[in-house]
Design a protein around this nucleic acid. Sequence first.
DNA 1: GTCTATAGTCGGATAGAC
DNA 2: GTCTATCCGACTATAGAC
Lengths: 225, 225
Amino acid sequence: MDQKTPLSKPKTGSNTQDRLLEAAVDVFGRHGFEAATTRAIAREAGVNIAAIPYYYNGKEGLYRAAVGFIVKKVQSQVAAVLEEIKEQSFRDAASRDAAFVLLEKLLEKIINFMVGSPQAPRVARIILREQLYPSSAYEIIFNEFLEPVLDSIAVLVTAVTGEPSPRTAKLRAMAVMGQIFVFRFGRETMVRAMGLEGYSAKETEEIRRVILEQTRGAMETLTQL
Amino acid sequence: MDQKTPLSKPKTGSNTQDRLLEAAVDVFGRHGFEAATTRAIAREAGVNIAAIPYYYNGKEGLYRAAVGFIVKKVQSQVAAVLEEIKEQSFRDAASRDAAFVLLEKLLEKIINFMVGSPQAPRVARIILREQLYPSSAYEIIFNEFLEPVLDSIAVLVTAVTGEPSPRTAKLRAMAVMGQIFVFRFGRETMVRAMGLEGYSAKETEEIRRVILEQTRGAMETLTQL
DNA sequence: GTCTATAGTCGGATAGAC
DNA sequence: GTCTATCCGACTATAGAC
């Protein structure tokens, strides 16, 4: 076997640049920008520290590249559903049900990688950290992921409930997203409060059910208004 | 006026130790533990850097003191409601309405300081940061604030919906809290998505309405199951 | 209790050989 | 393109005068 042959999913990047990027996602995800050291990243990537300024113009450039990398991954998880939503117009009354189906579909996708996936912790930490302390990389996350998702949920909420104000629809969309994100950023709290070791498939499933039930409840009651 | 006279709300701590603590809450809240420097804290407090190891045994000790300080403040905001909840037993059917009233009361308290209060950003950042990167100070936040609040909401959810599983009740409580917290940790996203300058009283009020409406909807639908 | 001076450490970036 | 060696800056903490 020729180790140089490019595989579809190499265990680790073949070239220095890619290895650095992968290590960066990991280390920045675990420690955050300031606490992460270029030394640790280089060590984990198995390359020389000097390669960081060489390929990425320094620590900050590497960080931005890492953020871009994970956002692309995350975005790809919801891209198909977002496309479906854009195609529909939700004009007639029958489309209310279609909108609700799409809403559940989108929420499930987000739950799957925010709560259920094994890479979720490091990916989510970078995203959440940028919420708390926005850097120049915030734009990438907002433009490529947060805003499209928020807008799509708002569109669906409007179609489902008939909410007349676009402003209120966005607030509702944000609250719905919060129900999901809280299980990621508050994972430690959840684990301690319930005496878990972590989120297993069972917990992810329970979380999924609770979120979908409560969202359905909220939407239905609003519709009756 | 004697400056030494202890006032109920001094503009800034009279002694070195208190001034340091206040500055620490501010600087740690803005930058996080690693990025915050003892130099900046000492400068903001108007004291000598050497006072930090002297009074707090170093940067980490000061951080823990700051966390303890803010948790006590936050806890005091909800203490009265938590006490009310503990006193009730929620056994008869009539208590369902009482539970719902208390739930709304508690949520409003949390919204008020998590979204509406001017100190919210720095206080919340410290709390949220400990969720992402728990340190030894996490215990304080969990024991004094998160767990009591989570438990109380779970008790109320149980009383309102008749949810039989305590486990599920906690998950529901977490989701409800998420609706609130998302407006704090995702503030930057909210601001950009809606083209705001920040949360004014008007936005806080809208957020309050949306959260209470959606929570009410979720609870009512669950009751009918 | 508060200060100055400084020790001791570590991080990121660069220069230049190979 | 990758390495070693090194610089420079910034940080926390300590020693010791006052």
